[in-house]
Every structure is written in structure tokens, then in C-alpha cells.
């Protein structure tokens, strides 16, 4: 368990933001932390969607229950947060 900074690039938002998360967080928890700084502030909520996480440029998302320390994500890597159906 350790504080871990990543970069949030949230779909439909205009700016990259600093996102302090924890190595034990699941991808769903990381997505919720990113949404806190974008959704309802500059990005309209989409309650019918879930937010999935992927590396910038990747097609594939990380599994929703994968923990940060299991993913190989590096500190200050840019992650994309995308609205998905599931």
C-alpha cells in the first residue's frame, strides 16, 4: 500500500490532471478517483456508463478488478479514462 501518482486523461475533459491513487486500488477505484476531478465539474455525468482505464494509445482496457500494482503502470504514466457500456 503506497501513494502512487498517475496522470488522468479523462474522456471529454480538456486537460491532463494529477491523480494521487494507491497501489492497492482496483481499476474501478482509480477510475472513480479520476472521475471525481472531471465528472460533474467539466464532463457531464453518464450514469448509464462505467469508466474503464487504459494506457494512452492502447485499445485494450485493464480488467476492472485489477489492482494498480499488478498492472505494470509506472508512476506518472498517462492513463485514459473512457466511458464504456460495461
Amino acid at each position: 500500500m503506497a501513494l502512487f501518482p498517475v496522470i488522468s486523461n479523462f474522456q471529454y475533459d480538456f486537460v491532463l490532471q494529477l491523480l494521487p491513487v494507491d497501489t492497492d486500488n482496483t481499476m474501478d477505484e482509480v477510475a472513480a478517483a479520476a472521475a471525481h476531478h472531471s465528472v460533474g465539474r467539466r464532463v457531464a455525468p453518464r450514469p448509464d456508463k462505467v469508466v474503464r482505464v487504459r494506457r494512452q494509445g492502447d485499445e485494450q482496457f485493464f480488467p476492472r478488478d485489477a489492482r494498480l500494482h499488478e498492472t505494470g503502470i509506472k508512476p506518472m504514466e498517462t492513463l485514459e479514462f473512457i466511458f464504456c457500456d460495461r
Binding site: 471529454y12 486537460v15 491532463l16 490532471q17 494529477l18 494521487p20 471525481h36 476531478h37 467539466r42 464532463v43
Partner: peptide, 20 residues
């Protein structure tokens, strides 16, 4: 705001572009 924007290592200005 509740966090910092990421700042460009050259311009020192937040990294941003088109939303929506």
C-alpha cells in the same frame, strides 16, 4: 479545482486541448 493540472515540461503551461 481540487488537484493540479499536468504542466508541460517545455512551456510550463497545463497540457490541454479540445474537450467534448
Amino acid at each position: 479545482p481540487e488537484t493540479l493540472p499536468i504542466v508541460c515540461n517545455m512551456s510550463q503551461i497545463p497540457i490541454c486541448a479540445v474537450p467534448g
